[in-house]
Design a protein around this nucleic acid. Structure first.
Lengths: 175, 175
DNA sequence: AAAGATTGTTGTTGACGACAACAATTGATG
DNA sequence: CATCAATTGTTGTCGTCAACAACAATCTTT
């Protein structure tokens, strides 16, 4: 942090800027202005880039759509799995969702504080907890699913209903 | 942090565990073991979940494939855009890639330290920098692109060549 | 010249993935 | 049965990343 010497900002002007008018970009643009015709070059052929942008958009919409109930995508996924498979251990949930068990601890803490989920000591294995939705948790999840379905409609509006289903088919092997 | 009272762990055994044998899950499974047949319920219909899992996989593969040159996806995207549009300002690059300009500062710091990119004071606007690849930066980028193409082949192997192209088409509106 | 917007920068916050260590407990092996 | 390895939940740290807020320097507008 203390090493960055800032050759440009504060000392701007000391360097003579001996450059031909401007090494005109690959486009027709001279400077880096607002013009939205900046080429992405190899990036357009990369699935990762498109997926990253898409995921950003989709998560933001999810968070916004479920803002009134203050539930984030990961929390929703945890509650959904527990709701469909009551009695699961934390390890099982973590493994199934691809979450680290260390991270799941905090997620469950927050959900337990809000009385949506309860950790019940397993009768057969005193190391593990059997995860269950509470009464209020079940009721809440119904509403969450309604809102999540609304979010899913936003997705369909954005990329098209057909495309959304195709996408789900293509990525089914990751779920 | 100091409030979590841990009703289960340390005090395990004090509570009588008055529960019928086990509230058998929706599946046939009793406990939350390793069995990989845990239902996802509503999650399977959510694009966001599939996309999150896919992005995780794809980024890990990218990082692994480009590990020898120590370049991460975001760094690659920055260098690619600068390479294709020399002279861009930081604002322009940030806006184009959907990165925050605050974040781009650090990205450029690291790339400038490695002498891949240089911030040249703009001749027309003394606030902004014109971003360029250095000689070594251009050479390196060629290799990065080769490795990135190899990564892209991994993606095609994973989800299928046809599916990959379809995916790119569907998500083209986000790039 | 003054007011407002833009650009790069610094800093903070919170979500998240990865990893390492630990106590309690279970399971397997001798 | 005693012992050792493995598992489970937990705590902690580290680094990445998005989102904001504030700031100085500089442009733009009036």
């Amino acid at each position: 942090m203390a090493s960055k010497q800032q050759t440009s900002r504060k000392a701007a002007g000391t360097r003579a800027a001996i450059r031909r008018p401007q090494a005109r970009a690959a486009n027709g643009r001279t400077q880096g202005d607002a013009g939205d015709d900046i080429g992405l070059d190899a990036l357009v052929g990369h699935a990762g880039y498109a997926v990253r942008r898409f995921q950003l958009w989709i998560f933001q919409d999810f968070i916004k759509t479920l803002a009134t109930v203050d539930i984030r995508p990961t929390q929703y996924s945890v509650m959904t799995v527990i709701g469909a498979n009551p009695g699961l251990s934390q390890m099982a949930v973590a493994k199934r969702l691809g979450i680290e068990r260390a991270r799941l601890v905090h997620l469950l803490d927050s959900l337990e504080e809000r009385a949506f989920v309860s950790r019940i000591p397993s009768a057969t294995d005193r190391r593990s907890h059997a995860l269950h939705l509470t009464g209020p948790g079940k009721t809440a999840l119904v509403q969450f699913k309604r809102l999540a379905a609304e979010h899913e409609r936003h997705v369909a509006d954005k990329i098209g209903r057909e495309n959304r289903e195709q996408l789900l088919r293509i990525l089914a092997c990751f779920t």
